[in-house]
Simulated scan of single mutants.
Amino acid sequence: MDLSFDTIVLAIGPRDDDRLDDLARAVLQVAKPTGATVVLTHVFTGEQFSEIAEELDYPKATEEDVDVILDRHESVQYFEDVFDEHGVGYDVRGLVGDVSEKIIRTAEEREADRVVVSSRGRSPVGKAVFGSVSQSVLLDSPCPVTYVKPVDTTE
């Protein structure tokens, strides 16, 4: 059994700001000792992309400008700083479209050994009614998936 890791896809979204430390820790536990490259993947829906572009004072941004938007996005900067500090190689990949589809396609294209995702922590009923990016990735990923559970803030 081959236990080497070359590529880890870290999927982050616009609502992951409260769990960046947990996602970084999960990725570093595997990437640092194995020397794997992290593909920092940020997928926006069309609406999310427009909102973020507006917030970053880039109201005329198009999908072709996704890398420019990501260069200014705080969560991407956070991970770049963490990976630089720990000597972990990374690539940044910005995409616009169906979130789970783009994450799965990135994992396939990059021949990822692992995908790391988190969730908004919706209830099982919410997932059944509205769907779940994390659930789709867990079911359809071409490689194992590490799910980073949201911190329970109700305690």
Rank of each mutant, 00 (worst) to 15 (best):
Y147S: 05
K102S: 15
R72L: 10
K60G: 01
E109P: 05
E51T: 14
Q135K: 06
R122A: 03
P14L: 14
Y58W: 04
E55T: 03
P142V: 06
M1K: 11
A53R: 01
R120H: 15
V39Y: 06
E54S: 12
M1A: 13
I52A: 12
V43E: 07
Q48P: 01
A53V: 02
D2I: 11
V125W: 05
E55F: 07
G97S: 04
T45R: 14
P142F: 11
R110V: 08
A31G: 04
L139A: 10
A36F: 06
F83I: 00
R19T: 05
G131R: 03
A26L: 05
V43R: 09
S141P: 11
P144R: 11
R110M: 14
D98W: 00
E155F: 10
V39Q: 01
H73T: 12
R114M: 15
L56V: 09
V96C: 08
V99I: 15
K32I: 00
D65Y: 10
P124W: 08
L70Q: 08
V82S: 04
I69G: 02
V30T: 13
D113A: 06
S119R: 01
V125E: 04
A26S: 14
D16R: 02
L3V: 13
A36I: 03
V145D: 03
D91E: 15
V129I: 15
D81S: 14
R93Q: 09
D84R: 15
R72Y: 01
L138D: 07
Y90V: 00
D6Q: 14
V30G: 03
G94E: 11
V96L: 08
